[in-house]
């Protein structure tokens, strides 16, 4: 019988992220379906608070690797911690959230203990007594259901696929595990570079993804481009709705060709084939063009609407719920006026 180990790193305040709580639901559900024991393994400067918050999750034991060394999100310490937690529990399946911190180490930790991994899975369930995961291939163009015989099997779960664990808190007993760090630690995390509140346009937890296409910077009916106004409209809209911004590759690339583009855009905004595929309940695409390969950017968006001048727009036809054939400048100006 596979023991299932849920692993997570704590946030700066000692809590667990929403993504980790979602992964806990995934681990707990799988354990219940397989009738397998569940253990929890936590990594952080201090893990007791996080352990207490999971007290009601039904884990048979909670293990922790803690101390100042483990406060920083870095490979050397995090990989050592995961390997030690695995060693302490002898789990067959290790499940964590596909956060940047966990994604940095999970496959490596699996390799260190002679295991295998599958990352960013979007579904995880028992089927015929076996754990089966779903994950996407070729930049979200196709998905596979798969299982593995090899153990240990490390799995990271994409955010937004499971409900976050919301069980009662309590008092948990944490078994401290010490982690051996081979070769010592040569990396220091010196800080975070975060966009300021006004510049913050990527919001993974936002209810809405606003996708701005290259059309925003093209010549408009009066024969001139209005990138300045486009910027203003987009930023005001994002501030009012607290939405997250995504862009097309063509818009990001335009900056490389010296064209007038939106100043706040970076490659991190890019969604689609060579960008990200974020998960949001709603998506509004404006001035986007392109076919299937580019449209994967909103593969994981719930309700989708698009504003485009072209009624045959590949982004919209068959991909959006509603397509408004209209000038995005006019529509969004009006939307801004109507929004509180």
């Amino acid at each position: 019988m596979d023991k299932i180990l849920f692993v997570a790193q704590t946030e700066c305040d000692g809590s667990l992220s929403k993504a980790s709580l979602e992964a806990l639901t995934a681990a707990k559900t799988l354990a219940e379906q397989l009738g397998a024991p569940l253990a929890v393994g936590l990594v952080g400067e201090a893990v007791q608070a996080a352990a207490d918050s999971l007290a009601g999750c039904g884990a048979e034991a909670v293990y922790g690797v803690s101390g100042p060394d483990f406060a920083q999100p870095r490979y050397a310490t995090d990989a050592a911690a995961l390997a030690a937690l695995f060693g302490a529990t002898g789990a067959g399946i290790v499940i964590g959230a596909a956060t940047p911190r966990m994604s940095r180490v999970l496959p490596g930790a699996a390799a260190r203990v002679g295991g295998v991994s599958d990352t960013s899975v979007t579904a995880l369930a028992a089927s015929g007594g076996k754990p089966v995961v779903t994950r996407w291939y070729y930049r979200q163009r196709m998905y596979a259901e798969l299982t593995r015989k090899e153990r240990p099997w490390f799995v990271s779960v994409s955010s937004g696929c499971f409900a976050a664990y919301a069980g009662a808190a309590g008092s948990a007993s944490v078994t401290a595990v010490s982690a051996e760090i081979p070769g010592g630690v040569r990396t220091q995390v010196t800080g975070m570079i975060c966009p300021s509140a006004e510049e913050q346009t990527i919001r993974p937890d936002a209810a809405l993804l606003f996708v701005a296409g290259a059309g925003w910077t093209k010549k408009q009916a009066d024969g001139a481009a209005h990138a300045g106004e486009a910027e203003e409209i987009i930023l005001s809209f994002l501030n009012k709705t607290q939405g997250s911004l995504g862009t097309s590759k063509s818009l990001v690339d335009l900056s490389g060709e010296g064209q007038q583009v939106l100043s706040f855009l970076s490659h991190m905004h890019q969604v689609g084939q060579t960008g990200s595929t974020p998960r949001h309940p709603k998506g509004l695409a404006t001035c986007c063009h392109g076919e299937e390969p580019h449209v994967v950017g909103w593969r994981f968006i719930g309700e989708r609407r698009a504003v485009n001048l072209d009624p045959n727009c590949g982004w919209a036809q068959g991909k959006a719920d509603v397509l408004y054939v209209a000038d995005a400048f006019e529509v969004m100006r009006k939307v801004l006026a109507l929004l509180p």
Binding site: E257, E291, N312, G314
Partner: peptide, 17 residues
């Protein structure tokens, strides 16, 4: 399919910058 779709489905033009 429309001419535009033929370009997207079957054409796959590359134009390095």
């Amino acid at each position: 399919v429309s001419h535009q779709d033929a370009l997207l489905m079957g054409g796959k033009v590359q134009a390095p910058g």
